[in-house]
């Protein structure tokens, strides 16, 4: 027992040293402590991981700055920004309605592509816009009608708070403010991209939609309207189900808030972190 404790202690000491060395190494070139003060951030759960990662790295570079990041969903982020509860509102959708009153400044931080995925055992490889709409609104409830096996369709969608769902409803289901379209009441609602992938990956007759960065070999991406989801086609607009991820501020950002957003847009962060799941903002040419 005693030796195990000792070695645990040694590991702890070593880890602490390693972290300290790393932090010192990071801090050195960047004029330590250029920004100070507290930055409060909330909003989209899609943006949350990016925002959090940026906060951690930003605080390591600027020890006197403090960035607090919370989720809650795009609408919550924008609402809290307007109520001056937070300094930055993360959003996975554009401003709408009352939100768009000219006081908020948009910072596009990444580009996201929504991919339609099915279980790998499903022989269906391509779906048209109409087919996708019919499937997700419940008009088509059997795979047979779109060239698949005679099996019930299980739709997997995101929760009400999700910006991904909002964009999907708008682009794939042609939902508008006047004629809102909803996915079928029998759809499974999930709180994250990861859960959608898990359920589609383990349920034979399932179909769902997830962010481009989440696609892996557990699920099969299908072409949408004859176009395969890809960075090239999404950034030119040929693949329609794509969107920007945003950080909004009240007016032009200043001080630590500006420092934080500049950091998110900086080349190293975009290349190393953003591009793991999304498309770097510089690589996008659409709109």
């Amino acid at each position: 027992m005693r030796t195990r404790h000792k070695s645990a202690a040694a590991v702890a000491v070593f880890t602490t040293l390693a972290v300290l060395v790393t932090l010192a190494g990071c801090g050195a070139p960047a004029r330590k402590g250029r920004y100070s003060g507290t930055v409060k951030v909330s909003g989209s759960t899609t943006v949350l991981p990016l925002s959090q990662e940026a906060a951690t790295e930003f605080m390591a570079l600027n020890p006197r700055a403090n960035v607090e990041v919370q989720g809650g969903g795009s609408s919550v982020g924008v609402a809290q920004l307007m109520q001056k509860v937070v300094d930055v509102g993360n959003s996975s959708r554009e401003l709408k309605g009352d939100e768009n009153n000219g006081t908020l400044v948009d910072h596009r931080i990444a580009f996201d592509i929504i991919v339609i995925v099915v279980n790998p055992s499903n022989p269906v490889d391509e779906l048209s816009h109409e087919q996708v709409k019919a499937i997700f609104t419940g008009k088509v409830d059997n795979w047979k009608k779109v060239g698949g096996p005679d099996k019930e369709v299980v739709c997997v969608v995101r929760d009400q708070a999700s910006g991904t769902r909002e964009v999907f409803d708008e682009k794939a289901l042609d939902s508008t403010k006047e004629h809102p379209m909803e996915s079928t009441p029998s759809a499974i609602e999930c709180a994250s991209n990861g859960v959608v992938r898990e359920i589609v990956g383990t349920t034979r007759n399932a179909i769902g939609y997830i962010s481009f960065g989440y696609v892996n070999n557990k699920v099969k991406a299908v072409t949408y309207g004859g176009v395969e989801a890809s960075v090239a086609d999404a950034s030119t607009g040929r693949y329609p189900m794509a969107r920007y991820l945003h950080m909004f501020t009240r007016g032009e950002p200043e001080g630590a808030v500006k420092g934080y957003i500049d950091f998110v847009l900086s080349d190293p962060f975009q290349t190393e972190i953003v591009s793991q799941e999304y498309i770097k903002i510089k690589d996008v040419t659409v709109k």
Binding site: G72, G73, D159, Q160, A161, S186, A187, E189, A191
Partner: peptide, 24 residues
């Protein structure tokens, strides 16, 4: 969100619906 009486169909309970929707 569907009303169903089939044990094999998906639905929600009051508790699970509250926690699914309360975020927004």
């Amino acid at each position: 969100r569907q009303l169903t009486f089939s044990p094999l169909q998906r639905t929600s309970t009051l508790t699970s619906r509250i926690i699914t929707d309360m975020g927004e």
